[in-house]
């Protein structure tokens, strides 16, 4: 398995194993990837697990819910490919996915 590639804002890459069913947020935490705070522990309540998903993978992600989208709406760093990493479970389909981390979490 290719797993997940997290790229920090400063360009540092972290290639880590994926765990099926585990959220990208939890995978980042378990591997000490910096740049994700995840203050609410994955409840979609804090928006401090913001990531940018590489375009090639956009179509394979679970659809963004209204509440996730609202949480991101006012984020000054929001891009079209912004997501909350706690809302994306890793799956076989996402094997090899590339995730960019923003400079700040709000």
């Amino acid at each position: 398995m290719a797993g997940v590639k997290f790229i920090e804002h400063n360009g540092t890459e972290h290639n880590v194993d994926g765990i099926i069913g585990e959220s990208l947020m939890n995978i980042a935490l378990a591997n000490l990837v910096p740049g994700i705070d995840a203050d609410c522990g994955g409840e979609c309540s804090c928006a401090t697990c913001h990531v940018l998903v590489d375009d090639a993978w956009a179509g394979k992600l679970p659809e963004i819910t209204e509440s996730e989208s609202s949480m991101l709406d006012l984020n000054p760093d929001r891009e079209v490919n912004s997501r909350l990493s706690c809302q994306i479970p890793f799956s076989e389909e996402l094997d090899g996915i590339t995730i960019q981390l923003p400079e700040f979490q709000y």
Partner: peptide, 11 residues
């Protein structure tokens, strides 16, 4: 049930 209002209040 108003995540946007919550986020705006933080700002």
């Amino acid at each position: 049930n108003s995540p946007k209002e919550f986020m705006v209040a933080k700002r």
